[in-house]
């Protein structure tokens, strides 16, 4: 590993951490446009983060050290995931260090800490949110793993950068299995990021919220870190999706600085498209009852397994 590789890695991390709130702002903006509302500024997530960082933190009296540590752990895990997902260049020190399964493990770690912190205070809504979060998580995780397995089977490796290289270098071929798993992945993305068919990101209605309920006890810088981590999670999922299904334009080691510049432009375009289609989907669909969520995620799992079976049978 040369020094430039480390520099690129650092650039990728910083770019990811900075872009994530903007992506969230873009999704909110598109949603507002589609619903005929006047849209909040693209920088609105930054403004609220700024406001939260300057407030005085308040902790419940019976908060344990875990409650104070959890925001840093969750945020740190998400930054690590940004480093691992090959969103800009494939051969970077962190991207080759961990494979797709380790990635799912990291995401699970973040979820465990989020849920433990939500239950730590002992308030009813936090516990409720944590339970629901775990339910969604345990249903979504097998589907996500299946999606990753199909991509791994097609490219014969579980390492994300190699999958991206293999799929982007191949000549045009139709992969029905990849199409199935792409739909499954989109469903997992919606469920994991508390988007509309499963959870409404804009709601603060106690009985329906999932993700927001786990953050109820947090304030100031802790809340800011948690919200930043949530936007990073969305960014990460979109980037994983891009790596698996639209890796075209990602830079490889031989391409140097121009390749990197092109990769940044390609990534920005893909994020724009992904954000606006997410907003479009959220606008046209209604929130499901919580008891329909297993059905939704079972469908995602089914699509992913079907993709795998079709790949095994047709070799496509």
């Amino acid at each position: 590993m040369t020094l430039s590789a480390f520099a690129y890695q650092l650039l990728e991390i910083i770019l990811g951490v900075i872009t994530a709130p903007v992506l969230l702002g873009w999704v909110n903006q598109c949603r507002a446009w589609l619903q005929n509302r006047s849209a909040p500024s693209l920088w609105q997530p930054y403004r609220s983060l700024h406001k939260l960082f300057y407030k005085q933190a308040v902790l419940a009296e019976n908060a344990s050290p875990l409650f104070r540590v959890a925001p840093y752990v969750v945020f740190g895990t998400m930054v690590l995931v940004v480093a691992i997902v090959p969103s800009l260049e494939t051969r970077l020190p962190f991207t080759v260090a961990a494979d797709a399964i380790a990635l799912v493990g990291l995401l699970a770690t973040a979820r465990v800490f989020l849920s433990l912190a939500a239950m730590d205070i002992g308030a009813a809504f936090g516990t409720l949110g944590a339970r629901r979060e775990m339910m969604i998580g345990f249903l979504a995780e097998p589907a996500l793993l299946m999606v990753l397995f199909v991509a791994a089977m097609i490219s014969q490796t579980t390492s994300l950068p190699l999958i991206a290289e293999r799929l982007s270098s191949e000549s045009l071929a139709l992969y029905p299995s990849l199409a199935f798993t792409a739909v499954a992945f989109a469903m997992v993305l919606l469920a994991e990021n508390a988007r509309i068919p499963i959870d409404n990101p804009a709601t603060h209605l106690e009985l329906t919220m999932i993700h927001e309920a786990t953050l109820l006890e947090y304030s100031a810088r802790h809340l800011a870190l948690m919200e930043w981590a949530a936007s990073l999670k969305l960014y990460n999922y979109v980037c994983i999706g891009i790596t698996l299904f639209l890796p075209f334009g990602v830079a490889t080691q031989s391409q140097g600085t121009t390749g990197l510049a092109l990769a940044i432009v390609a990534l920005a375009l893909k994020l724009l498209v992904a954000g606006s289609s997410l907003a479009l989907f959220e606008t046209v669909s209604a929130k499901l009852r919580i008891f329909r969520a297993p059905e939704f995620l079972a469908t995602a799992f089914l699509l992913a397994v079907l993709g795998m079976l079709v790949h095994l049978l047709l070799g496509a």
Partner: peptide
């Protein structure tokens, strides 16, 4: 996969959609 002609690829996609 690259060895398969394009019309057969389409047939495979149709079969997958059928399922």
């Amino acid at each position: 996969m690259n060895g398969i002609p394009f019309d057969l690829q389409i047939l495979n996609v149709l079969a997958a959609l059928f399922l």
